[in-house]
Simulated scan of single mutants.
Amino acid sequence: MQNSAEYKFDLKEIPKEQRPREKLIKYGPDVLKNGELMAVILNTGYRGETVLELSHRIIKEYGSKAIVQEKNVGRLMENLGIPLVKACQIVACFELGRRFFKEEPGRFPTIRSPEDAYRYLEGMKKLKKEQFRGLYLNTRNKIIHDEIVSIGTLTANLVHPREVFQPAIEYLAAGIIIAHNHPSGDPDPSEDDLKVTRQMTKVGKTMAIEVLDHIIIGNERYVSLKDKELM
């Protein structure tokens, strides 16, 4: 159980004209920024951060696309330094949204080239931590699922094939595009990047689920290992 003494701020302590909840009631959700909407969900701050400060930090550090896809409560707690109840609120909120809009037409694009994949993943260039993602495609190269596989420095030990291919089995994917960012800004592949790529490609051949590409994202450019003939 969380210690209530750690929750030092709530929405009522913010000046009335700045309160996200009051803005939501008066103007509707369209006028609220992402951080303000997150503040309505979280309701209180934590350990010296106001709820707005906490909300903006969560989105900035994790990335808006990444946090929408995150399903692991423990990982969210560890990476953001937030308590269990807040991690649960975030995961439950976005899971509900995913379920409501799972069948929404056009929600996921068709990937015809490395450039298409980069456009979809471009937001990763702003992330402060290295993140490994899997894009799961059907036979028409349309994304049917997008999952964060791991967060942290990419190594063959950190990224296990089981975690990459389990969603492919679950969603009946025909192919996978793996991707990760380099917070340093330089997308040139490291030896670990190449090792992980070879490992995933080998497992994909065994399972008849093709690893179509590995996209590495830097600040202003990206590298496709398929284009570079490195896989």
Rank of each mutant, 00 (worst) to 15 (best):
residue 6 E to F: 11
residue 14 I to M: 07
residue 15 P to A: 02
residue 18 Q to W: 15
residue 25 I to C: 08
residue 29 P to W: 00
residue 31 V to I: 10
residue 34 N to W: 01
residue 41 I to R: 01
residue 44 T to Q: 04
residue 46 Y to P: 00
residue 46 Y to H: 05
residue 54 L to M: 12
residue 58 I to F: 00
residue 60 K to L: 07
residue 61 E to A: 04
residue 65 K to M: 00
residue 69 Q to F: 04
residue 70 E to W: 00
residue 71 K to H: 11
residue 71 K to D: 12
residue 75 R to N: 04
residue 80 L to D: 00
residue 80 L to P: 00
residue 81 G to T: 05
residue 85 V to D: 02
residue 92 A to Q: 08
residue 98 R to G: 12
residue 101 F to E: 07
residue 102 K to P: 06
residue 103 E to Y: 13
residue 106 G to C: 08
residue 107 R to A: 09
residue 114 P to N: 11
residue 118 Y to N: 07
residue 118 Y to R: 14
residue 120 Y to V: 08
residue 123 G to T: 13
residue 123 G to W: 10
residue 131 Q to S: 08
residue 135 L to D: 02
residue 139 T to K: 13
residue 149 V to N: 06
residue 154 L to F: 08
residue 157 N to F: 10
residue 157 N to I: 12
residue 160 H to R: 15
residue 164 V to S: 05
residue 167 P to V: 14
residue 173 A to P: 09
residue 183 P to M: 10
residue 185 G to C: 08
residue 188 D to Y: 13
residue 192 D to S: 05
residue 195 K to L: 11
residue 197 T to F: 06
residue 197 T to V: 09
residue 197 T to L: 05
residue 199 Q to C: 12
residue 199 Q to T: 10
residue 202 K to A: 11
residue 202 K to S: 13
residue 202 K to N: 12
residue 203 V to E: 13
residue 204 G to L: 13
residue 206 T to N: 15
residue 209 I to D: 05
residue 213 D to G: 02
residue 218 G to M: 10
residue 223 V to Q: 07
residue 226 K to A: 06
residue 230 L to G: 00
residue 231 M to S: 11
